[in-house]
Nucleic acid binder design. Structure first.
Lengths: 197, 197
DNA sequence: TTGATTCGGGATCGATCGTTCCCTAATCGG
DNA sequence: CCGATTAGGGAACGATCGATCCCGAATCAA
């Protein structure tokens, strides 16, 4: 009833991610968001409650979109060393501005807020879980088709790749050369391959 | 001449690191620092200029102490798989409060500020360089004494370990189980070992 | 001791923070 | 068309931000 909203709440949440992930939670002011989203303060408070509420919505949206796409990237990855490396590079280097790399929203948030906010930790860990789930799928397929060295454990490979992804995305965020990251990916995977020369 | 300072500027810088690394640059207020360091605002401004100046001093101090000790940890590391894993665990899990893990000051800062501040990037990269230098030393020794698989390149191993360290320290910061991190370290190194079963 | 100088504590500055409130415009059901 | 209700713009709130200033206390050289 009464006057309807003139903006889409979910797409505004999506837009807020671009601000939060670059400037961080504390580094982003409500007025920053107002400017970038083109919304007034009252509209935002009416729609999301407060800054913390919008931030949680942003983390949820990120998990439902980018984190989920990252998971699917591995689910659909070709079960070869090259295929895995391509998926890893696609996730880590995805559409970053070289002058102002945003990195991963979940990772940046985990680094900024640590364990201080339980509702935030819950969401970043859920995003991490999606990445691990995708990795487990492709790792299992690589193990079964003999691409991986037969003696190595799949869980160990998954855990190593997950940890490496955190590192690579942090390196991207720090401005490290994408070509170097790409080379780093290949170099890190090769020792797990059965055909390592 | 005149009245001398009643506090040691360098040890106050050291104390500021504990605050900055947990709360971040933007999450730490001058009054937070005043409380934790036991100094008045005027004392801090007189000694360090401004908040940014103190932050750079803190980054410099961190590099000269913890980053350098991290480097030496690898320089003095026994040239075995176990020795390397012990050094990695010592660096990554060093004296963290399980309830409020601080993580690595340089890594947290890189994640928070990205490439927005050149004087900060310069310092975090210098800290990273120390870690890589230590890793290169122990990796070279492991390569020469045949602990590593003869076909793998030392540079690739160093790059992988460096990236893994970023990931492990971020996982510690996120509150991941230290036992799991310890297991992750061993699992990640084994495939590079010549005696991998 | 004296005069110059710097220290430390605290009040205070303007700016900005997250948030609330008020008021008008717009859209609903009837 | 009309009364109810909500959206949106913007002023304003108290709190806190980084930073400055003032002043009495302390320590120097002479």
């Amino acid at each position: 009833m009464a006057r309807p909203r003139t903006f889409d709440t979910e797409s505004a949440v999506a837009a807020s991610i671009d601000v939060f992930r670059r400037r961080g939670y504390r580094g982003t002011s409500i007025r920053d968001l107002s400017t970038h989203l083109g919304l007034s303060l009252s509209s935002m408070y009416r729609a999301y409650g407060d800054k913390h509420g919008l931030f949680l919505r942003a983390l949820d949206h990120y998990r439902h979109t980018e984190s989920t796409q990252g998971c699917e990237l591995f689910l659909e990855s070709e079960a070869t060393v090259d295929g895995l490396c391509r998926s890893l590079a696609a996730m880590v280097l995805a559409e970053e501005d070289p002058d102002d790399p945003a990195g991963c929203f979940a990772i940046n948030t985990a680094a900024e807020l640590g364990r201080t906010d339980a509702s935030v930790v819950e969401r970043t860990e859920a995003a991490f879980g999606l990445t691990r789930a995708g990795l487990r799928d492709v790792a299992q397929r690589l193990h079964e088709n003999g691409t991986l060295r037969p003696d190595c454990e799949v869980d160990a490979f998954v855990d190593t790749l997950f940890t490496l992804i955190l590192g690579w995305r942090l390196r991207v965020r720090s401005g490290h050369d994408p070509a170097a990251i790409r080379a780093s990916i290949v170099a890190a995977v090769i020792p797990w391959s059965a055909q390592a020369t």
